[in-house]
C-alpha cells in the first residue's frame, strides 16, 4: 500500500514536469521569433564608440530617427566592403 501511494503521485508528476519543460522551451522559441530581425520590424537600438572626422565619438542608433540609415557590418578593417 505504502509503495503504491508513493509510486502513484510520482507517475502523475512526471508528465507535469515534462510539460513545464516544454512550455519553457516554447516560451524561449516565442521570444526568439519576437526578437528575430525581419524587414518591417524595428531595428534593435544600440550605443557604441565610433571614429568620425578625426574624433572618437559615442553613437546611438536611435539618435538617427528621422533620417535614413545604412548600417553596414564587415568582417575586419583592412578588408573590402
Amino acid at each position: 500500500m505504502a509503495v503504491g501511494c508513493t509510486k502513484k503521485p510520482k507517475a502523475n508528476s512526471e508528465p507535469e514536469v515534462k510539460n513545464q519543460v516544454e512550455n519553457n522551451q516554447n516560451l524561449e522559441k516565442k521570444e526568439e521569433v519576437e526578437n528575430m530581425i525581419l524587414v518591417g520590424r524595428k531595428a534593435p537600438d544600440f550605443e557604441t564608440e565610433a571614429y568620425h572626422n578625426g574624433k572618437f565619438i559615442n553613437l546611438k542608433l536611435s539618435n538617427y530617427l528621422g533620417k535614413w540609415v545604412l548600417l553596414c557590418f564587415y568582417p575586419a578593417d583592412f578588408t573590402f566592403v
Partner: peptide, 21 residues
C-alpha cells in the same frame, strides 16, 4: 566560429524600421 561580423547591410527608415537587408 570566425569571431567576426559577416557582411550584413540594413536599410533603416526614418521611423527606425528595417526596410531591407
Amino acid at each position: 566560429d570566425l569571431g567576426l561580423d559577416v557582411r550584413g547591410r540594413f536599410i533603416i527608415d526614418p521611423d527606425g524600421v528595417i526596410q531591407a537587408m
